[in-house]
Nucleic acid binder design. Structure first.
Length: 476
DNA sequence: ATGTCC
């Protein structure tokens, strides 16, 4: 990335003043080193987003930003319906409501270490993973609609998990405003047997150790201490979300033309929030959010069953579940006035600071857990939202390491078998349905997640709270 | 991310 086009606001904030058809500036939060390494495409995409109608304040990119479909992955943008604001399917991403949940187990590394291989085997046997993987949950079309309305709440009502889990999920487990009738039959058909499955790509279930604590006070509120074993689940809305994204990108391209919205890139296809197509997308997208919440809830149930076979004393309690591919209506203060904005976070995690009434009481005083999934074999992090974050990018932070190499490049460079063996030597048990998938996800194909998280912390997007390192990884 | 091209 050529740094000469930026104004340096601070060591971790870089600004592009509006040029051409940009309505607002673009802002990238990153260290100088991360910005230099960043894909040139991020500059193009983050400034393209700044041209869209009704965008408020700025178009933002997080430290892990990289090239995405239309919007960068790691992009944040808010739109005001009163100012002709738009909603964009590409601004949410194909894997609608992809996200991470982390659970404490009540176990320590000493408990789990001797049982690691057996635990890996049983988790891999019970949790379906891989492209097109199907699970033990099969939905009739009526049940499908109930799932799309109810999210994790539906899952709990069907025996997957407990009421207590719901408190610890964004939107309390159920996204309001879902419109299952706006989800195509094709999307529902694809999802029929996919609830409770991990999927592929960067999705995983990991058993992790709490390796370091940076902020003891907040870590205690989250229930984390060094040597504890936790479980993290990273996945989304599977075939259903992907199908919705595909269909609405097509119809939004037509809608943009119809509403005379000039697009610098056709991948930015969008529709006014106050339009039929905009409202239909929001209803379908919220249904997909519920699908992802239900999916992570069912997988949690499967993980609890797997743990119970080896560790009857284990108790998997949810810390939090937060998505990083969404468009959500939120109240934010702009120039002293509270406005209702449609905040797109694509590969960006909501990071609300202390005091927000929608946060669970247990940690409302310290801020929201921001769960950052690393790449395979590398660390993950728990961050906490802070008040300052809400003055930056509408209370958002990074979501992971971000790729630094394409999947094709990675498969040319590494072999899945070698990666699994190398990680086993380091004490990390990988189980995966596809060796090619493992090569694509090689740790070397990703940026350094620690550098990304440090930049997020220094930029004021979130506090670094804890570092998690993998013991077992069930790879999608 | 994805029934990795209906």
């Amino acid at each position: 990335m050529d740094l000469s086009r930026f104004t340096k606001v601070s060591d971790y904030e870089w600004r592009v003043e509006p040029f051409g058809k940009m309505r607002v500036p673009a802002v990238i939060y990153a260290s100088e080193a991360l910005l230099r390494e960043m894909d040139e495409k991020v500059f193009e995409q983050v400034t393209n987003v700044a041209t869209l109608p009704g965008i408020v304040k700025a178009s933002y990119a997080m430290p892990d930003a990289h090239w995405g479909y239309g919007f960068p992955i790691g992009g944040v943008a808010a739109f005001d319906p009163e100012a002709g604001g738009v909603v964009s399917a590409g601004g949410v991403g194909f894997d609608i409501s992809c996200g991470v949940r982390t659970l404490t187990t009540g176990l320590t590394v000493a408990d789990v270490e001797p049982m690691k291989k057996a635990l890996a085997d049983i988790l891999f046997a019970r949790i379906p993973a891989g492209v097109g993987s199907t699970g033990s949950v099969h939905l009739s079309m009526e049940e499908m609609d109930a799932m799309l309305e109810g999210g994790a709440r539906w899952a709990v009502s069907r025996g997957f998990g407990t009421e207590a889990d719901l408190e610890r999920i964004e939107e309390r487990g159920m996204m309001a405003g879902a419109r299952p009738e706006e989800v195509s039959q094709q999307a529902k058909k694809r999802q029929r047997d996919e609830v409770g499955t991990l999927g592929s790509g960067n999705h995983y279930l990991e058993v992790q150790r709490v390796a370091e604590i940076y902020h003891p006070h907040i870590a205690a509120a989250f229930g984390l201490k060094v040597g504890d074993v936790v479980v993290s689940i990273h996945c989304g809305s599977r075939g259903l979300g992907h199908q919705i994204g595909t269909e609405f990108l097509r119809s939004m391209a037509l809608a943009a033309k119809e509403y005379g919205i000039e697009l610098p890139d056709r991948e930015l296809a969008c529709a006014p929030i106050r339009s039929d197509i905009g409202q239909r997308y929001l209803g379908a997208m919220r249904a997909a959010i519920n699908c992802a919440l239900a999916n992570r809830q069912v997988i949690t149930h499967l993980a609890r069953e797997a743990f119970a076979t080896l560790f009857p004393q284990a108790r998997l309690d949810l810390i939090y579940d937060v998505s990083h591919n969404t468009c959500k209506v939120e109240e934010h203060e702009v120039d002293g006035r509270s406005r209702k904005l449609y905040v797109h976070r694509k590969g960006a995690t909501r990071a609300f600071g202390p005091g927000r009434p929608d946060l669970p009481e247990a940690f409302r005083h310290v801020g929201q857990p921001v769960l950052i999934g690393g790449s395979m074999g590398t660390a993950s992090y728990v961050l906490a939202g802070r008040e300052e974050s809400e003055h930056h990018a509408w209370g958002s932070a990074c979501h992971g390491a971000g790729r630094s190499m394409s999947r094709i490049q990675a498969t040319k460079r590494w072999r899945g078998r070698d990666i699994i063996e190398a990680l086993a030597v380091r004490g990390i048990e990988i189980r995966a349905p596809s060796l090619r998938g493992v090569a694509e996800e090689a740790p070397g194909a990703y940026k350094d997640v620690s550098a990304v998280v440090d930049a997020a912390d220094r930029a004021g997007l979130a506090h670094k709270v804890a570092k998690l390192t993998p013991l077992v990884c069930i790879k999608g």
